[in-house]
């Protein structure tokens, strides 16, 4: 810690001039001596002026322990089932007036739908601002980071919580859009942590001050925490839709199965839902430019659908696209994983 501080002192000297507007988060550094001497001048009978001085009264500023943790995630961080290296970003700032170590702890709230798996704390040691393989893991609950409140560069650290999004909720049901996982990063002064008891702000801990101060004083914020939330997103939600389109039959004008003008091609679209629920499912297929849709040819799971926009879910819109578009609108219901649909339609080669 000594080394860090001397280095930091040097840095402070050069950096303060450059970044005078970027005020340090701290007050007078621990160990600073504040001395004060009063003087008086007065006139004696006869007109001579003389001077006197008081003795110097001095005091040493002790170490003040304070820390601030802020979440850098403006909103919930969108994630999806099974996604790896999902990152929440925090900044831990030493708002005291000396070098202090802070123990970091990660906790997961049990009141949300899912917990992240393999969640770990990393310090942005390479200073990139984003989680990279070069960052250092800090063991939750035991690992600590050293921060120098009196340095413009060493006072704060960017901390990542990195985890893997599970494939299901905690209760093993499927994840759906909007499901949440809340994680908390806590930082506590190691000096206070080592005390073993809960201190009261203002409490003086003797013999442990840093920066030349004999003692440390527990500030009002000797520990602090901040939350970050992962949310199963709508765009990158857990559910996936698998679509395959295939040609299941070709009938040419001569009773054969060649692709020639006049041949009727039967397309099959297989749609299946996986990994969660889906809402607003709409299947559409644009008829290729060199083909004509065969009127009344839409089927869903074997049942015929009319081309008109009416009570059934199938529509052929001749004005959409070059040769019209077939749409199967299944948005009225929510479909869960495992649901599948088979759509067929026919088109004739021009």
């Amino acid at each position: 810690m000594k080394t860090l501080q001397s280095a930091a002192r040097l840095l402070t000297g050069t950096l303060v001039a450059l970044a005078s507007s970027a005020a340090l988060a701290v007050g007078t550094p621990a160990g600073t001596n504040i001395s004060n001497t009063a003087s008086a001048s007065y006139t004696l009978p006869g007109g001579t002026t003389t001077q006197t001085k008081s003795s110097t009264v001095s005091l040493t500023v002790l170490e003040l322990i304070n820390v601030n943790v802020t979440s850098q995630n403006g909103a919930n961080v969108s994630t999806s089932a099974g996604a790896t290296d999902q990152v929440l970003t925090f900044v831990v700032t030493n708002t005291g007036n000396a070098v202090e170590d802070f123990v970091l702890t990660l906790t997961q709230s049990s009141s949300e739908e899912f917990d992240m798996t393999n969640a770990k704390i990393f310090e942005d040691t390479d200073g990139s601002g984003t989680y990279t393989s070069g960052d250092t893991e800090i063991a939750s609950g035991t690992g600590s980071i050293g921060l120098d409140a009196n340095s413009t560069t060493e006072a704060a650290a960017t901390i990542f919580i990195v985890g893997v999004t599970p494939t299901t909720r905690d209760d093993s049901t499927a994840l759906v859009s909007g499901d949440l996982s809340q994680l908390t990063l806590e930082a506590i002064s190691e000096t206070v942590d080592n005390l073993g008891t809960t201190p009261t702000p203002g409490q003086r801990i003797t013999g442990v001050g840093s920066g030349g101060a004999p003692d440390a004083v527990v500030g009002t914020s000797y520990m602090d925490d901040a939350n970050g939330v992962f949310e199963i997103g709508t765009g990158s939600g857990t559910a996936t839709i698998n679509i395959t389109k295939s040609i299941v039959a070709v009938v040419d004008p001569f009773g054969g199965s060649t692709y020639v003008p006049g041949s009727t091609v039967t397309y099959q679209i297989d749609v299946s839902v996986a990994n969660g629920d889906v809402d607003n499912l709409v299947i559409s297929d644009e008829i290729p430019g060199n083909m004509d849709y065969v009127a009344g040819s839409i089927t869903l799971d074997g049942g015929t659908l009319t081309d008109d926009s009416d009570t059934d879910v199938g529509v052929f819109d001749s004005t959409s696209g070059t040769s019209g578009t077939v749409t199967i609108d299944l948005s009225a219901s929510t479909y869960s994983a495992g649901t599948s649909f088979v759509v067929q339609l026919q088109a004739e080669i021009k």
């Binding site: 007050g27 009978p45 500023v61 002790l62 004083v217």
Partner: peptide
């Protein structure tokens, strides 16, 4: 104990232990 943010009060006591009056006294404290 003194830490940043604390308020410090300085009291400067003066006394004239001579036998005559001191006039035009200016007590100065930075």
């Amino acid at each position: 104990r003194v830490v940043p943010g604390d308020t410090i009060g300085y009291r400067i006591s003066y006394k004239n232990s001579g036998t005559e009056t001191a006039s035009d006294v200016a007590i100065n404290n930075p």
